[in-house]
């Protein structure tokens, strides 16, 4: 059970953050279909940051001294860098959609095509292979929390809470949850958030209140890019051992589905992300999943074709969206370029 919860969180949290990224853009009136591309780009940039800093040897001393707190700081820096790069990448979408009034769906799709191509291009140059790894060691030894850090021996077991939420988890996951909460509060409880949301509902009304619609839409898209970039990096850090290969397994699109299923509201998005995370976790680890701790791998013993489990998250997405997207309430003005002269 601890394993299941832990793994679900690992998948659900990036999904949740990236879905919130989508909410930020759409609430400001821009459809951010480029979430996938921004995740890929952010993941690449984050890994590149970790790799380069390792190469310079900056945190080597902390690693050798087993100073885990400093290493977590390193991880947070990498997240910040990925967020910044995601924001920069999303400026492309913002410029196309806001200044050039381009079709946002096409702009987003273009970025989705651009990101893996650019990323793979640089990975080939940098690493001479299709995957960009850390410079040395692996993500687990540098960034993962382990029970040994808290004085538990090899044979000792932590209690339920400890083994679920402390042992073998990344602090990055919790930072993401914190960011999710803070950003949700900003979007729904502050004047800035309210201004931003009004631009997605009725930009003409916002302008009549003296709100700078173009500025707000830039803010929404850039914050969206930052969240998605960070989510992309956290995804590869926790599930792919901090290596980038120009792919995030469709998580960006899954996040869009989560956002729609969650009806553009943080609470619902959180729930939806957990559901998808659970299925994603089952898909990834059904063969070693021991749900009630009796040593029986139930799902594996069911003898169902393994592809069924792998398909589950995507099939669920289809089914859920087919039933819920009709009642969903998207921001009214999303996808419509702001033109002060039009009504």
């Amino acid at each position: 059970m601890p394993f299941l919860i832990r793994q679900t969180l690992i998948y659900a949290v990036p999904l949740m953050v990236v879905a919130l990224a989508g909410v930020y853009a759409e609430r400001s009136g821009i459809i951010n279909l480029a979430l996938e591309g921004i995740m890929i780009f952010g993941a690449f940039m984050g890994v590149l940051f970790v790799r380069t800093v390792q190469e310079w040897g900056w945190f080597q001393a902390a690693y050798d001294a087993k100073n885990y707190l400093t290493l977590q700081g390193f991880c947070a820096l990498a997240m910040l860098f990925a967020a910044m790069m995601g924001a920069v990448f999303s400026l492309l979408l913002a410029f196309a959609a806001i200044n050039l009034k381009a079709d946002q769906t096409i702009g987003g799709t273009a970025l989705n095509l651009l990101a893996p191509a650019v990323v793979l291009f640089f990975i080939r140059i940098l690493a001479n292979q299709n995957t960009l790894n850390m410079y040395k060691d692996d993500a687990a030894s540098w960034f993962m929390l382990k029970k040994s850090m808290f004085g538990y021996g090899r044979k000792e077991e932590m209690n339920f809470l400890g083994s679920t939420f402390v042992d073998k988890v990344y602090v990055a996951t919790y930072i993401c949850i914190l960011v999710f909460i803070v950003m949700s509060i900003i979007l729904y409880k502050t004047r800035f958030g309210m201004r931003l949301r009004s631009c997605g509902e009725n930009p003409q009304a916002s302008a009549s209140l003296g709100i700078n619609v173009i500025g707000m839409r830039y803010a929404g898209t850039v914050l969206s890019g930052a969240l998605a970039g960070m989510g992309g990096f956290v995804y590869v850090l926790t599930t792919a051992n901090c290596s980038a290969n120009g792919d995030v397994a469709g998580f960006g699109f899954l996040a869009l589905a989560v956002m729609i299923f969650g009806n553009w509201k943080p609470g619902n998005i959180c729930g939806a992300a957990m559901l998808f995370g659970l299925f994603k976790c089952i898909a990834a680890s059904y063969s070693t999943l021991d749900i009630n701790g009796d040593g029986v791998y139930l799902l594996k013993n069911l003898n169902i074709n393994t592809n069924i489990y792998r398909m589950m998250p995507y099939v669920i997405t289809l089914v859920v969206l087919a039933f819920t997207s009709k009642s969903s309430r998207a921001p009214k003005a999303e996808g419509i370029p702001y033109d002060p002269g039009k009504r």
Partner: peptide, 14 residues
Amino acid sequence: DLADEHTVLEHLTL
């Protein structure tokens, strides 16, 4: 120039 989903009070706060 009122956004359909928002109340008058919400408009005023902005």
